[in-house]
Nucleic acid binder design. Structure first.
Lengths: 138, 138
DNA sequence: TATTGTTATACTCTATAACTATA
DNA sequence: TATAGTTATAGAGTATAACAATA
């Protein structure tokens, strides 16, 4: 992985390395990556419809259904009918789901911090800022 | 995309944004992402065996075959028998392949530079360095 | 008529196993 | 016996189309 590589290749390499390091953590907690993404999206307390949730995490709405089925069966999320629109179902974290997400997130942060070892705090802050800039640039 | 997100989520978001922006460039030049990755690996002038090439770009050796078939049919790479091991075939860029890669890479760099607009040169350098660090950290 | 959640289907991508020719 | 390249097959992941209930 050379610093003269394409930026896309660098992002892909870093993302793959992180995903490989985090996969055992997710497995230990019985979650797939996408299930963790769903929990993370709901963690701030939001209760979006399934369609809005799918758009937020950029996941296919038809695939989200099986994902939510599993999370609901595990007692981590709850689906409730939307009083304002009886077609829609609103998804929110259960207390157990909130606990599980907090635990997994803490473990993930540990892995990420170990990967960032050697980089000064200011560099880490700039890295997060630059990545957010890239993800949001038109 | 919040700066308080997991680092993995930030990398994935930035990588996806870059891939989406670069896909039209690759299509315009008639290359898939993995074909471009192969050309990039060979661009420095290396002539690895197919197995070594597959390991270098972290691609399955069985899938690499169809990829090389297409690149060879397009006249961008050449496969030659390895004189030292008659089981192995050595892959290298053709002059046309080198030209094509240089052209695509220049176009990709343009897209990446536009995505990086707003970030000072020192921040860009640190971003590349930090991503390379992440990809190589044990 | 359009939209949400859902199911079913088809398609693509990826991984596994087996074959050949060499080593 | 093991390895490089190849092929064929099975599996996972993803996208598309259609349906019922509701707007």
């Amino acid at each position: 992985m050379n610093e003269d590589d394409d930026l896309g290749a660098l992002c892909a390499g870093a993302g793959r390395a992180l995903a490989e390091a985090e996969r055992p953590v997710l497995e230990r907690h019985g979650l797939s990556m996408w299930q963790y993404v769903v929990l993370s999206a709901l963690a701030p307390g939001a209760a979006p419809s399934q369609l809005v949730l799918a758009q937020q995490i950029r996941y296919d709405k038809t695939r989200l259904i099986a994902l939510l089925d599993a999370l609901e069966a595990a007692g981590l999320v709850a689906r409730e009918p939307d009083p304002a629109d009886r077609r829609a179902r609103v998804v929110r974290l259960t207390p157990e789901g909130a606990r599980r997400h907090a635990a997994v997130r803490a473990a993930i942060r540990e892995v990420e911090d170990s990967k960032l070892a050697g980089l000064p705090p200011e560099t880490r802050r700039q890295l997060r800022s630059a990545l957010a800039h890239l993800a949001n640039a038109d």
